[in-house]
């Protein structure tokens, strides 16, 4: 590699560490918020996993341990997805609120590196938080997962994260083009994924049109893969049906996310929306 591209790449990588560094500072400074938010997620997930016990208590014939694990995986992936979307959407919304948006967007940092840095932090933070959440709930229900292959589950989550980041980039643009309502609009995308991806039920129960949407949702394949790894102990060699679609969606969603964000940034620059609130 000649000196100029190498230097540019180096500067970009330093910039990426800056994005991660900033988010680490914010996590540290808002630590009590993080604790309170984690407790809320634990409570939320508990209420969902308790459904398995509830069905048995009301006379249903189910394997409680298996059903609770299925719901737990759904709850954890839903929370993971929520973190990725939230952090990427904050790329614009939080900066606008703090007033730093103009300084960040006029810095010589490629947008792909800027958003990629947010994605890297979101995945790191999301994985740690999801692992904690999984551990706490599994301990609470004394769940048994004798054949679980956690490494394969983590690899599936890693591959799925690329698609989640791509989708997050698309929702990150919403506060850029609509400062007042953009963040809320992001919840629509998130909600759609919740309904169609089989977070708490098999996608077969959905109407045909929704099943088609499930086919293009990366969360569907992530959930299938992770559930198979944890419940059946499937290794990566058996995960082709999940990893291949996830990789394809990831390859499409990142450039598509960048394209959408670039369009949004251009629109914001044209209409004077790239500025702080108030």
């Amino acid at each position: 590699m000649s000196r100029a591209p190498a230097a540019t790449l180096r500067a970009e990588l330093i910039g990426l560490t800056g994005v991660v560094e900033r988010n680490l500072y914010l996590t540290k400074r808002y630590f009590l918020w993080e604790v309170a938010f984690f407790f809320w997620t634990v409570a939320n997930t508990l209420t969902i996993v308790f459904i398995a016990k509830g069905v048995e208590a009301s006379g249903g014939q189910i394997d409680v341990n298996r059903q609770a694990t299925i719901l737990l995986v759904g709850g954890v992936i839903w929370s993971f997805l929520g973190i990725i979307f939230e952090i990427l959407t904050e790329t614009v919304a939080w900066e606008r609120w703090e007033g730093t948006i103009e300084y960040t967007f006029m810095a010589p940092l490629s947008r792909i590196v800027h958003l990629g840095g947010m994605g890297v932090f979101a995945v790191l933070y999301g994985v740690i938080r999801s692992a904690l959440l999984f551990g706490v709930i599994a301990f609470f229900f004394d769940l048994e997962m004798p054949s679980a292959d956690f490494v394969s589950a983590l690899v599936v989550l890693g591959v799925a994260s690329i698609s989640f980041i791509g989708l997050g980039m698309m929702t990150a643009v919403l506060p850029l083009i609509s400062p007042e309502k953009g963040s809320q609009l992001g919840f629509i995308g998130q909600g759609m994924l919740l309904v169609v991806s089989g977070i708490y039920y098999p996608v077969d129960v959905l109407p045909a049109a929704m099943q088609w949407l499930a086919k293009i949702s990366p969360a569907t394949y992530a959930l299938d893969g992770i559930r198979n790894a944890i419940l059946e102990g499937d290794g990566l060699s058996k995960m082709g049906d999940e990893i291949l679609p996830l990789a394809i969606i990831g390859l499409v969603s990142i450039p598509a996310g960048m394209l959408v964000f670039r369009w949004g940034e251009r629109y914001a620059k044209r209409h004077g929306k790239l500025k702080r609130s108030g």
Partner: peptide, 18 residues
């Protein structure tokens, strides 16, 4: 225009990385 919970040092540090 800074992240108000962060310190001066932290605000300058991440901005310089960009």
């Amino acid at each position: 225009s800074f992240f108000k919970k962060m310190s001066a040092g932290e605000n300058l540090s991440y901005a310089a990385r960009f």
